[in-house]
C-alpha cells in the first residue's frame, strides 16, 4: 500500500489545530482538578455556552474578537457563580460528590441551551477567510490562527502561574490547602478564581472552534469526554502532561480518521486510555513516581 504522505501532512496540521483547542479545554479541567479535587463534568457545557455567547455577541456587534472577549468574561463569571453555589458547600466531602453536582449542572446548562437556542445548530462566521495552499488543498489561515491563539493563551496561563502573585497563591493552594490558608491566602476565593479561569478558557475554546463546526447544545459532551481522556492519559492535575496528551491524542485521531469515520476515532483515543491504564496508571506524561 502506498503511504499517502500528502494526506498525512494535512492530517498532522489538522491534528495540531484540534490538539491545541483540546489542550485549552483540558488545561482548565486539570487546573480545577488539581486545586480542588473537582472533576468538572460541566466543563463541556462551559465550552458550549462559550460558543453560544460568541454567536449572540457576534450577531449583535458583528465583531468576532469582541465576541471572543465578552463570551470569555461572561462564562468566567458564570463559572464563578457555579463554584460558589454548588461546589463550595461540597468542599471537604468525597470528591465523587463534585462529579454528581457538576453532572447536575451540565444537565441544567445543556437543557437551558436547548430551550433558549433550539435544536438547530448555529453558525459562527470566522473573522477572516484567507487561505493558503497545502498540496492540492486550500487550507484556511483561520485554523492556524486558532492553534497559535490557543498556544498563546496556554503560555499566558503558564507565565501567570509561574510568576504572578496570584499564580503563586494558586500553586501553593494546589499543594497544601490548609497551609495556604494559614499563610493568609484566601483559599475559598482562590478556588472560585481558578474555576472562573478554567471556565473562561473553555469558553475561549468554544468561540474559537465554533466556526469549524456548528454550535449546538450537545457539542460539549464530545469535548468533555476527550478532555477526560486527555487528563487521565496526561496525569490528573498535571498541566504539562495534559497539553502533551491533548496534542498526542488529537494527532492520533486525525491519522485514524484517514481510515475510519471521525465518529469512530474516539475508539482510538480510548485504546490509548486503556493502554495507559494498564501500563502507566499515573499517566503517560508524568515522571515515574519514586
Amino acid at each position: 500500500m502506498e503511504i499517502p504522505w500528502d494526506i498525512i501532512l494535512i492530517q498532522t496540521v489538522n491534528g495540531l489545530v484540534t490538539g491545541m483547542i483540546l489542550a485549552l479545554v483540558a488545561s482548565g479541567l486539570t487546573l480545577i482538578f488539581g486545586i480542588m479535587d473537582v472533576v468538572n463534568f460541566a466543563h463541556g457545557e462551559l465550552f458550549m455556552l462559550g460558543a453560544y455567547m460568541g454567536v449572540v455577541v457576534l450577531t449583535t456587534t458583528g465583531n468576532f474578537w469582541l465576541a471572543l472577549v465578552i463570551a470569555v468574561l461572561i462564562v468566567a463569571l458564570l463559572g464563578a457563580a457555579m463554584q460558589i453555589t454548588t461546589l463550595r458547600p461540597l468542599l471537604g466531602r468525597d470528591p465523587l460528590n463534585t462529579i454528581l453536582a457538576t453532572f447536575g449542572l451540565s444537565l441544567v446548562l445543556q437543557n437551558y441551551a436547548l430551550w433558549q437556542f433550539g435544536p438547530v445548530a448555529r453558525k459562527i462566521q470566522e473573522p477572516f477567510t484567507g487561505q493558503f495552499t497545502l498540496f492540492y488543498l486550500q487550507y484556511p489561515w483561520y485554523r492556524i490562527v486558532i492553534a497559535v491563539l490557543s498556544a498563546a493563551i496556554i503560555t499566558g496561563l503558564y507565565l501567570f502561574l509561574k510568576y504572578g502573585r496570584y499564580g503563586i497563591w494558586i500553586r501553593a493552594t494546589t499543594q497544601d490547602r490548609v497551609m495556604a490558608q494559614a499563610m493568609g491566602i484566601p483559599v475559598p476565593w482562590v478556588h472560585t478564581a481558578v474555576f472562573a479561569i478554567g471556565a473562561g478558557m473553555a469558553a475561549a475554546s468554544g468561540v474559537l472552534f465554533g466556526p469549524l463546526v456548528g454550535v449546538n447544545h450537545a457539542m460539549g459532551l464530545d469535548w468533555v469526554l476527550k478532555a477526560f481522556i486527555v487528563v487521565v492519559v496526561g496525569g490528573m492535575g498535571n498541566l504539562g502532561g495534559s497539553i502533551a496528551a491533548a496534542i498526542f491524542i488529537s494527532l492520533l485521531e486525525a491519522y485514524a480518521s484517514i481510515w475510519v469515520s471521525p465518529s469512530q476515532a474516539i475508539i482510538v483515543s480510548s485504546i490509548v486510555l486503556i493502554l495507559t491504564l494498564l501500563f502507566r496508571p499515573t499517566g503517560l506524561f508524568v515522571p515515574t513516581p519514586k
Partner: peptide
C-alpha cells in the same frame, strides 16, 4: 510548599 522555590514559599506570606 515542596514544589515551590524557597523564594516562592516566602512570597506566599509576603505578597499581601
Amino acid at each position: 510548599f515542596k514544589l515551590l522555590t524557597v523564594m516562592e514559599n516566602l512570597r506566599t506570606g509576603l505578597d499581601r
